[in-house]
């Protein structure tokens, strides 16, 4: 609660919260908010030459290259975009924390092996790995979620690992250990609570990264499958119209930037609030 209060006191973070809330509302109530279904190709939605229409009274943000209402697609697009960003990142943080804490707590050959595997994953060019994984399975919303999670857990693992190591050398843990406390007790009662601030910060900042990864995958045509809109695949579909109909690209990529910016603002504020010593790049 105190954290929330502190967040509210920071204007920028508050702004970020409001934006995210607005996106969440759009996503949840899209069918009621959006003026048209996201996949309806309007008969009057294209010029005679088959070009998209500019913004007008009927189509507030214009139409896309298939004669669909861009605003409706943006609103529905919040669904897939948020699902990927939040769920993929949650999974990534969960995996990362599990690996990091386990490795940090176990130490020895087991922990070392886990961290070597993490190093291995760090060495992969993330986008390349994601592209390959996406090509291996037929891409769908959930495959995209899993692919991104599989690529993004590594950072969290490294951070939690370092934290766990330094925590377990602190007196209260060594004391618990000498008192004969079991591993679960040490892990859940003592280690995890201390890791919460770090994890929260990384989870928030990670959502920004995740939504950008989704956007890039979709931009390359291997993300969320059409006609389900995501902001990333909307850019992909319309990218060649950048010069002719810039709104087709600017609105969705602006939404992506706004979403990532909001999560970054909150993450930044959380970092300041929760742990002023955490600095630098995540």
């Amino acid at each position: 609660m105190a954290v929330l209060k502190a967040l509210f006191q920071r204007k920028l973070a508050l702004l970020g919260l409001i934006v995210i809330l607005a996106f969440v509302i759009l996503a949840l109530f899209a069918p009621w908010i959006a003026p048209y279904p996201f996949d309806e190709m309007h008969k009057d939605g294209l010029t005679d030459f088959g070009s998209p229409l500019p913004p007008s009274a009927k189509y507030w943000l214009g139409t896309d290259t298939l004669g669909r209402d861009l605003l409706s697609r943006l609103i529905f697009g919040a669904q897939a975009t948020l699902i990927v960003a939040i769920i993929a990142n949650t999974i990534a943080v969960a995996i990362g924390t599990l690996v990091g804490v386990t490795a940090g707590y176990l130490r020895g050959p087991g922990g070392s092996a886990l961290m070597r595997f993490t190093d291995l994953m760090t060495a992969f060019p993330a986008l390349l790995l994601a592209i390959l994984l996406a090509a291996m399975f037929n891409p769908s919303l959930w495959i995209v979620v899993i692919v991104i999670a599989m690529v993004n857990w590594v950072q969290v693992a490294r951070v939690t690992y370092t934290e766990t190591i330094s925590l377990s050398e602190r007196e209260f843990i060594t004391a618990e250990r000498s008192l004969g406390a079991g591993a679960p007790r040490i892990l859940f009662r003592h280690l995890l609570p201390h890791l919460v601030p770090t994890i929260t910060v990384y989870a928030t900042l990670g959502i920004a990264t995740t939504s950008l990864t989704e956007a890039t995958l979709s931009f390359l045509g291997i993300g969320v499958q059409p006609p389900t809109p995501s902001w990333g695949n909307m850019v992909n579909e319309n990218q060649t119209y950048f010069e002719v109909a810039p709104w087709l690209v600017f609105f969705p990529s602006g939404c992506i930037a706004l979403l990532a910016l909001s999560f970054n603002l909150i993450g930044d504020a959380l970092r300041d609030i929760l742990d002023p010593t955490l600095r630098g790049r995540h």
């Binding site: 298939l66 045509g221 291997i222 059409p226 060649t240």
Partner: peptide, 15 residues
């Protein structure tokens, strides 16, 4: 095939 305009045409067929 995932290269424009084919996904767009496929979406029209899908519809």
């Amino acid at each position: 095939m995932n290269v424009d305009p084919n996904p767009r045409i496929a979406q029209a067929i899908q519809q």
